[in-house]
Simulated scan of single mutants.
Amino acid sequence: LNGSKIFVTNGGVSGLNLIFAITNPSERGREYSVFIVESEREGLEKGAQEKLMGMRGNPVCPIILNDCRVPRENLLGEEGQGMKIALSTLDGGRIGIGAQALGIGQACLEASIKYAQERYQFGKRIAEFGAIQGFLADMATRIEAARLLIFRASQLRDQKKPHSRESAMAKLFASETAVEAARIGLQIHGGYGYTKAYPIERYYRDAKVCEIYEGTSEVQRIVIARSLMKK
């Protein structure tokens, strides 16, 4: 096997790696196969860990394969099933990232409520101001909507029913909700939100990647739109 992949999630600590490789370039749609490759196998090298803006607990790094010889028994599934295997994991992965984004959004809401009830300005808690109440109401409403989208996609997956569109919707809405909740939450915190004194700055940094990995928001919109055209 030869090639490289950048931004490998948990690549810095992985013991086993799933490598998608071209094994039959002449057969369109079945040219990819998946191999299980041990990190200590000769020919596999890991690059330096990336210095991330957020999600710093995730050791991301590139993986480089240079004439890495892998025995046939390390083939996952059958030869030519790589694309099928990859697509089968995407829907579940999008639900997972949606749930992650939901957790970040919920944390933003809880931190903002706590701060608004503790912070006094002009002789009263800022939670009593209409503008702050509006922020909190919008955050809570979007977060609850994201939760229900994730539950719906998860239910369909548990029932082994088609759920590509629903998982894309859940991931899209939840990730953009997390980013917006972090933005509003930081605004509620004011200048303190821009310091490390409160956790909202971390949520702000962590939320953004949810719009990027496991398919960007733009990709999710394409998936949703194409599914609508099939009707």
Rank of each mutant, 00 (worst) to 15 (best):
L109P: 05
L156H: 07
Q117E: 13
I104H: 01
S4I: 10
K114W: 04
Q159L: 13
I95Q: 05
E73K: 07
L90D: 09
M139R: 12
N10G: 05
Q117S: 13
A101C: 14
L75G: 08
I6D: 14
E45G: 00
E50F: 08
Q81N: 04
V60P: 05
L102E: 08
N17L: 15
A207C: 04
H189C: 02
L148S: 10
G93N: 10
L76C: 14
Y192R: 11
P162G: 07
I63H: 08
R165Q: 14
R125D: 03
G47Q: 10
G82D: 05
I97A: 09
R119K: 15
F151Y: 09
G57V: 05
G190E: 09
A86F: 15
Y115W: 15
R28G: 00
I104N: 11
Y115K: 07
L102H: 13
E218C: 06
L1Q: 05
G193V: 03
Q159V: 01
R30V: 00
G134P: 03
I22G: 00
L228E: 15
R152G: 00
S154I: 01
D67R: 06
K208S: 13
T195W: 02
N10H: 14
S164L: 11
G130L: 11
F35W: 13
E31M: 10
K84N: 02
K84W: 00
G80D: 07
E38K: 15
A168Q: 07
R205P: 01
Q100R: 12
R152A: 08
F151D: 12
C68V: 09
S217H: 09
C68H: 04
E73M: 06
L65C: 13
S227Q: 13
G11W: 03
R72Y: 05
I224E: 14
G193N: 05
A168I: 05
V179H: 08
A170M: 11
I95P: 12
G103F: 08
N58P: 01
I212P: 02
Q187G: 03
R72C: 02
P199S: 06
R119L: 02
F151E: 15
S227L: 08
I19S: 06
G29C: 01
Q117P: 00
L148M: 13
I132E: 00
G43L: 13
K161S: 10
R28Q: 11
A86N: 08
K196F: 02
P71R: 09
S227R: 13
H163S: 10
E166R: 05
A140I: 05
E40F: 08
N58E: 14
